[in-house]
Amino acid sequence: SLLATPPPPSAPSLPPYFTKGSIIQLADGELKRVEDLKTEDFIQSAEISSELKIDSSTVERIDSSHTPHFAIIQFAVGEHRSQVSVEVLVEYPFFVFGQGWSSCCPDRTTQLLELPCAKLSVGDVCISLTLKNLK
């Protein structure tokens, strides 16, 4: 009967690299803790990378989702300001230019990850990536 009953769905969780103390390797090989990362670290790493480029993604809307603990964030992405909506856990951290880690529910992010976090707001410009050779 154990085999007959499917396992319970695992609760959605955040990737381990957002946990305070996680070691992140920059493109030049330098190691930093996730909580110590600065905007320049991402910009310089993208400059070194032969494949990846930094995109600016501006938060245009933040709505609650029908799925508990999730939010729907609408971004204007890149130079063409493509409209992209993503559904994420409310504690999912985005890196805001000049500000650092931010999420829809910073208290929950800090509680779960011990990662210092600010409130993500409409108008914040987040770091996202695109491919350098993307037409």
């Binding site: 690299y17 070691i23 493109a27 790493s45």
Partner: peptide, 25 residues
């Protein structure tokens, strides 16, 4: 006798999303 413990190292680009997709809506 402390056993050496391997510490995971994550690449910088795993931390930020790819949002520019062809399926932009």
């Amino acid at each position: 006798n402390v056993e050496p413990r391997s510490v995971p190292v994550f690449p910088w680009h795993s931390l930020v999303p790819f949002l520019e997709t062809s399926q932009s809506n």
